[in-house]
Design a protein around this nucleic acid. Sequence first.
DNA 1: AAATCTCTCAACCGCCGCTGT
DNA 2: GACAGCGGCGGTTGAGAGATT
Length: 378
Amino acid sequence: MAKSCSSEKNNNNGLKKGPWTPEEDQKLIDYIQKHGHGKWRTLPKNAGLKRCGKSCRLRWANYLRPDIKRGRFSFEEEEMIIQLHTVLGNKWSTIAANLPGRTDNEIKNYWNTHIKKKLLKMGIDPITHTPRLDVLQLSSILSSTLYNNNNSPQINNNYYPTLFGIGSSSVANNPSQVLSLLASLLSYQSRNNDNILNQQIRTELSPTENNSNFSQKYFIQQNQLGTISPLLLQNQIHLNPSQAFQPNQPCANNFHVETQNMKSKLEPQIPFNHQNTLPNLWHYNGGGYMANQQGFPSLLENNQILCREEIMANFNLMNSMLSTSTASSSSPSNLNSSSSTTFVNGTTTTEDERDSYGSNMLMYKYNISNRLNNSGLL
DNA sequence: AAATCTCTCAACCGCCGCTGT
DNA sequence: GACAGCGGCGGTTGAGAGATT
């Protein structure tokens, strides 16, 4: 059993703890540059440091190593962390192995201080990556409301006290917030739909898997499983494998026509101030219609399987949200004056904009809801 | 301006798995 | 197989910085 620094102290009086001084850092750097590291236990004595080996190793690994990347996490890094966390859980070192220049400690801290809070705020359980139970109730209520306007059940504080402002655990205080939450929930749908598959991959990966091979194996297995096994979707649809299709494989069954029609139908309703078109979903390459990265970025960038029902469900929900809010669209000035969650042109970099993890078509739902909300249409 | 609160992140701690004896 | 040593990992802590009252 490894001794901690405190127990080492019994054998080595005067071991220093706490923050490292620049002088100590320099001693450690000089020693490792000259001799390399390896025997951490004996290193501090040889380097003239009054520190335990563990402290030296940690200082080097998390701070002094020359290949460490400093500065805030990029949007892509954030996406990667979430994706990997969905599969791996709190395996910070494995996650770090897939993010060059980032340390496990840094990623762990970033998760705990930023990402976890954002997920909770969006109604996503950061441990399971599935919608929280109370938000699922919310989704259920809203589905029936959105699809059945005339006979919709009254949302009632007596029935849903945890959703509407009773008690400290309420997730929303008014219908606008509820819709915002739902939009957030939906923007995670595609990720969550793969959760069962991800769990399967996690258990199949050997615990002794070499980190450097991890990414490769993960993607391969994901594709293999995706084509062999039916995916259990969140809405309980069992997909026939033939209805799923992979990146770089031609679209079958005229699905591209269906989705293009949906796209055309939706575009006039979208109150964007900077553009009123959704990304092109397909391109023809001579052999058939292929899915565009721009149209389905979150799905294609990780070679995930595109699911017909899932895409259509997203379109339908998007349409429902638009049609049940209002037929009119707001003016650009209204939209521009909206608050922190407004996305202006897709290239801005404020902190709040980075709150949305849907750098994809699904993000539109989130934006739409916020725009409608902020412009007073809800 | 001072007091208090909140947040961040470097560092520590204890445990685990691997390896050698 | 039992044990000890070691490196590595994940959870937690607490000092300091920044924000708020």
